[in-house]
């Protein structure tokens, strides 16, 4: 079919079709918008200590995108405030003394990389349902004391990893 032979009826038909599609499209997006949009878009001012995992994982941000260190190093660490500034105009930094609830004492050695990459263990397996956290947790997400040690050792027995005191304690 040669284009110059299409004639005006095709062009008019096309325009009418486009109009119909446009109107339908408009209806579709306006009803879709109400469902898909959060009440606020990107809050301009936020406090680091008010961070909500739920709100950010709902956006589709992967754990490893903020916690990349958990794949490359023993120490997980916490994301820098600058990371937040990519989206929020103003971020109130946490006080220097601020610490996450989940932290082992110095006599225990634990490597994230060893577990996430070599072990292939998901974050949720140890930290629980982080996606549901609306605020930084008050309690450690991996238990402290003997309860914690028992969880480490129980899994090590199952997977055949070391249960030698000195592989975890120094």
């Amino acid at each position: 079919m040669r284009p110059e032979k299409l004639g005006t009826s095709w062009v008019l038909g096309g325009a009418a079709l486009a109009l119909v599609l446009g109107v339908l499209g408009g209806l579709w997006t306006s009803s879709g918008l109400e469902k898909s949009l959060p009440a606020s878009s990107v809050p301009a001012t936020v406090a680091y200590t008010a961070f909500s995992h739920r709100k950010h994982t709902t956006l589709g941000i992967a754990c490893g995108a903020c916690h990349f260190q958990t794949y490359v190093e023993a120490w997980a660490g916490l994301p820098s405030v600058e990371l937040c500034r990519l989206c929020h105009r103003s971020v109130e930094a946490p006080p220097a003394s601020w610490e996450p609830a989940t932290r082992l004492p110095g006599h225990v050695f634990f490597s994230h990389r060893r577990h996430t990459v070599s072990g292939g263990i998901s974050c949720e397996r140890c930290h629980g349902e982080v996606q549901a956290w609306d605020a930084p947790p008050a309690e450690p997400s991996f238990p402290r004391g003997m309860a914690g040690m028992n969880r480490c050792v129980a899994c090590h027995r199952i997977v055949g990893a070391s249960t030698d005191c000195l592989s975890c304690h120094r």
Partner: peptide, 11 residues
């Protein structure tokens, strides 16, 4: 990262 290790050199 915001925090520094409290235990040993990182692997």
């Amino acid at each position: 990262p915001l925090s520094a290790p409290t235990a040993g050199p990182p692997e």
